[in-house]
Amino acid sequence: MASAYGGPEVLSVIDATVPEPGPGQVRIAIRAAGVNPFDHKMYSGAFGADPAKLPMRLGAEAAGVVAAVGADATGPAGPVHVGDEVIAYRAPGAYATDIVVPASSVVPKPAGLSWEQAGGLMVAGVTAVHVLEAIGLGKGETVLIHGAAGGVGLVAVQLAVARGATVVTTASPAKHELLRELGAVPVAYGPGLADRVRTAAPEGIHAAADLVGTDEAVDVSVELVTDRTRIATVAGFQRGARAGIRLLGGGPGADPGTEIREAARLQLTEAAAAGRLRVVIASSHPLRDAAAAHRESMDGHTTGKIVLVP
């Protein structure tokens, strides 16, 4: 919980009573919760600093075991029962040991995923699906994905490859081997990026996704993609707005893509269950060390997802 606006030092763990689920609700004993950049933006003041919103519970996704159910607790995959292993998204306040959410937020956890992988799947996954839908990526096209080694990026790469696209990605050289394993053509970011992308994709780039939020990502995308409706950002909202590209997610003026993201949940669990989608975990931290997890996330150089384990 954030007790004030500021940096990770404002985070603390408190004791609170968890209510019993009401009609259409379930209570989940959490095994892992995903950490996302949006979480620390909420209390950093990036989206405003209204004191009425404090103290602020954090988190949006979790995986765990259903501990109690209210009447008519039915999720997208059917009735939810005590003992079910599930993934919850949207799950406000998921940084917790237990949480009550609408049953409509709950989908079955694939048996082959660890708790950490399940807890870190949804936000990255639904964001990746939203991005690829927004830019209209199709079979035989070439897409440029900036920040491809992050949580969203690694999922987006796999989904784009599965669509039959050629995927050129930007990442630091230490992460290129993993991206190649996933079917991408990696290039290093930094000065000369546009020329390196042209070399990697001599027939051109049809669409681009900025998942890192740098001016370089937006500028290179605009330089290489003629149709700005086929460029999207989930992080560079100010620069993206000035460039006239698509803004996606929870930022100012962005398209939240609610219906696309809700529909993506079962697609993602099906792909993960079938082994078509890997969830790469960068690190896991105890819930009490959420501040350390946020400092790692804010560094911006992780490979995959960071998760909290109560």
Rank of each mutant, 00 (worst) to 15 (best):
G93D: 08
E177C: 04
G147W: 03
L137D: 03
H176I: 11
Y95N: 03
A184D: 09
G136L: 14
G93C: 10
T214N: 03
Y95H: 14
I205N: 07
G147P: 12
P102F: 00
G112T: 13
A91L: 02
G213F: 06
A94I: 09
L159E: 14
V152N: 03
G190W: 03
V187G: 02
V161N: 08
L211F: 06
G213W: 03
Y89K: 03
A156K: 09
H176N: 02
G192T: 00
G136S: 10
V100Y: 02
P202K: 09
T97I: 06
Y189A: 07
P186V: 11
D210V: 14
T97G: 15
Y189M: 06
H176T: 04
L159I: 14
D195H: 06
V152H: 03
E216M: 14
G153V: 08
P102R: 14
G151A: 15
A200T: 08
S172I: 12
G183Y: 06
G213Y: 10
A162E: 14
V155N: 11
D98C: 15
Y95Q: 01
A128R: 10
P102H: 06
A124N: 15
G192F: 08
D210P: 09
G153E: 05
A162Y: 10
V143G: 07
A209G: 02
V168M: 12
A188K: 00
V143W: 06
L159T: 05
Q117V: 03
T142Q: 08
H176P: 09
T169A: 07
E133R: 10
V152R: 05
D195T: 13
Q117C: 05
A171D: 00
S104C: 01
L132E: 10
L159F: 04
V161P: 09
V126L: 00
G93K: 04
E116Q: 12
R198H: 00
L137V: 09
I205T: 06
H146Q: 14
